[in-house]
């Protein structure tokens, strides 16, 4: 008898605590975010080999870039390559530029994000985020953040070594405090912007179940128009103006240009605002696509 009474009172207290917990406190939210972050971090570290390889392979392309551009500059002015200029870039500037876009892309690139979202839509795994009390985009954002943090932690040392070895290419030295803080801000925003841009592309998967061609086109465009392949300021007009208005440049070109002082001071504030604006646009767009997509989602896969 007493045990039943005890059970009953226990049930009541459980329900009471549950009801009080329904309203999530801010502290609790932080604690949820922290757990997602930690678990994602652990998950990332499971595949040590893949992780290490992915981290170090990033540095290989820079070597080919150095050889390629050194040949280009030599052919422009065979007698004195150091005098050769391409759209205001001398050879050392060019190398410094590529080193910096590598940093920018370490923040803005989201390997596998869009295709993974599309895959989850296709095979029905996305259901998890509709049934469990956790938001898909928030969850993916945190786990991507964890992946990036894991990456930076390991990659800082090789990055530092490469930059130290290449220090002579930075002829302009360190940028001033304003530029430096804009550079750091632009990197952080490039992460957020890149995340929501790719998430938006992945969410198109609600309409076209297969998005790999779309992603291929995007990757191609991004390769040229983000400044990953070459500084977009060397493009002829009118392409240059068009590309400068596109948001893709914030993924690679812009942070590097800020560091190297290629963005005029009077435009810096405007450009930063534009980056914030584009980030906001894609945050809203991904949210809109997500809720519209769920409306037409029919729960594929079982």
């Amino acid at each position: 008898m007493s045990s039943i009474a005890k059970q009953l009172s226990e049930t009541e207290t459980t329900i009471a605590t549950r009801n009080s917990l329904r309203k999530l406190t801010f502290v609790h939210r932080i604690s949820i975010w922290w757990t997602i972050f930690k678990v994602s971090l652990e998950e990332r570290l499971v595949y040590r080999g893949d992780f290490a390889l992915g981290t170090f392979m990033r540095f290989l392309p820079i070597i080919t870039q150095i050889f390629l551009w050194s040949a280009v500059f030599e052919s422009l002015n065979p007698s004195d390559p150091s005098q050769a200029r391409i759209a205001g870039f001398a050879f050392p500037d060019m190398v410094a530029y590529f080193l910096l876009t590598m940093v920018a892309r370490a923040f803005s690139s989201m390997p596998g994000l869009a295709s993974n979202i599309a895959k989850q839509i296709r095979d029905g795994e996305i259901k998890k985020f509709l049934v469990q009390p956790v938001d898909l985009l928030g969850y993916l954002f945190l786990s991507r953040l964890a992946h990036k943090v894991a990456y930076y932690t390991v990659a800082t040392i090789p990055f530092a070594i490469v930059f130290y070895l290449c220090r002579d290419y930075f002829v302009g030295g360190w940028p001033d405090a304003t530029r430096m803080s804009c550079f750091v801000m632009s990197l952080l925003l490039a992460f957020v912007f890149g995340f929501f841009l790719e998430a938006t592309l992945g969410l198109v998967g609600f309409w076209f179940l297969e998005v790999s061609s779309l992603l291929f086109v995007y990757m191609l465009l991004s390769f040229f128009l983000s400044g990953h392949m070459f500084p977009i300021s060397i493009l002829p007009e009118p392409f240059q103006t068009i590309v400068q208005f596109l948001p893709l440049k914030y993924l690679a070109y812009f942070p590097a240009a800020v560091f190297l002082g290629k963005v005029p001071s009077d435009q810096l504030a405007f450009e930063m605002m534009m980056l914030v604006g584009w980030t906001a646009v894609f945050i809203v767009l991904s949210r809109v696509l997500y809720s519209a997509g769920l409306r037409r989602y029919s729960g594929y896969g079982g």
């Binding site: 549950r18 917990l21 329904r22 999530l24 609790h28 604690s31 949820i32 757990t35 997602i36 678990v39 469990q132 009390p133 956790v134």
Partner: peptide, 8 residues
């Protein structure tokens, strides 16, 4: 552990 958090 994740469930503990998201389900409060």
């Amino acid at each position: 552990r994740l469930h503990q958090q998201i389900y409060c």
